[in-house]
Computed example of a mutant assay.
Amino acid sequence: MKLERDAFEEHFRNYRKYLRTEIHRFCDSASVYRQISERTQDHLDELNLAPAFFSTVEDTLFTTIVLWADKLFDERGERGLFNFLTFIEYNRDWMTTAELQRRRGYPDDHWMLQGRIPITAKSIEEDRAKIRSLEALKSIRIRRDKFHGHFDKDYFFDRSRLQNEAPLHWKDLNEAAQVMGTMLNDYSVDFDGEMFSWTTMNIDDLRHLLRAAKRGRHRNAD
């Protein structure tokens, strides 16, 4: 739906704020999930001090990863990246370089205004194609439909089918996060020049915790 300028700007800021939150939820979940997995290589004994806790956290994080990727990439979703792109498509008159200059009060020779590529229906469709081309998309949908969102009777009793038919690798999660974050940042910069980092804060907390547990375990052994 085409909005008036003020209504568009308010809706864009709100949409950006909440998309940023949900993209971070995906990125942070994937990052911590990987941390737990990798710590089995160098801190397995410490993880085994609380195996039920770490197993539950790991399973919960993976479910979050699948569900949030599915929601953010759902073409029919009422909110998510496809819906966001449609919102931009209808209101791209308010996403021009001139509008960026007005919002930020940039002088005519400001570097942010130089060589900007206009947003067009074609460029928006190319962004849709980037999402559709993700190799992991099929696996995410299968896992969501057959297990994490609903219990399919066949997959419920044969969990190995998910791994065989819907594999997910670290590179898949990285690529999904890259598409999410880059897409929101691209339109955010076109709107008012703002860009976000998707790095998980305090990601080394788990390593520090397990190192402390290892030192404590060794002291107790002595």
Rank of each mutant, 00 (worst) to 15 (best):
R215I: 09
E175M: 13
Q114S: 06
D222E: 06
E38A: 02
A213F: 08
W68T: 11
E22Q: 11
R20H: 15
V32D: 10
R116M: 07
D70F: 04
L61I: 04
Q41A: 07
K171P: 05
T200H: 10
P107L: 02
M1V: 09
L72M: 07
D186G: 07
T200D: 08
S197G: 14
H150V: 00
R79A: 11
G181A: 02
A166E: 02
G181T: 01
S160F: 10
R211C: 10
K17Q: 12
N174Q: 11
S197I: 12
D74L: 04
Y15P: 10
I65Q: 10
Y33H: 14
K146A: 08
K138N: 12
L19R: 06
F53K: 14
F196M: 13
Q114P: 14
D127Y: 06
K214Q: 14
F8L: 05
N14P: 12
E135W: 05
H11S: 13
D6G: 01
A129F: 04
E4K: 13
F157N: 15
V57S: 15
R211N: 11
A177W: 05
R215E: 09
G149M: 00
E38V: 02
Q101I: 01
R143I: 01
F87S: 12
D6W: 00
E9H: 06
F82V: 02
E9A: 04
D145Y: 03
R102V: 15
K130Q: 09
F147H: 15
R143V: 03
L210W: 01
D145C: 04
T21L: 12
L206D: 13
M112F: 10
R5P: 05
H218M: 15
S29A: 14
R76E: 14
H169Y: 05
E89L: 06
N174I: 08
D70H: 07
R16Q: 13
S31N: 15
L162R: 03
V179N: 04
S160P: 05
S188E: 10
N83K: 06
D70G: 01
F156P: 01
P51D: 03
R76G: 09
T21K: 15
A221N: 12
L3Y: 11
D152C: 11
D152N: 12
G105M: 01
E194D: 07
F196C: 09
G115S: 03
L3R: 05
Y155H: 05
R219K: 08
L67W: 08
F73M: 13
L81V: 07
D172S: 00
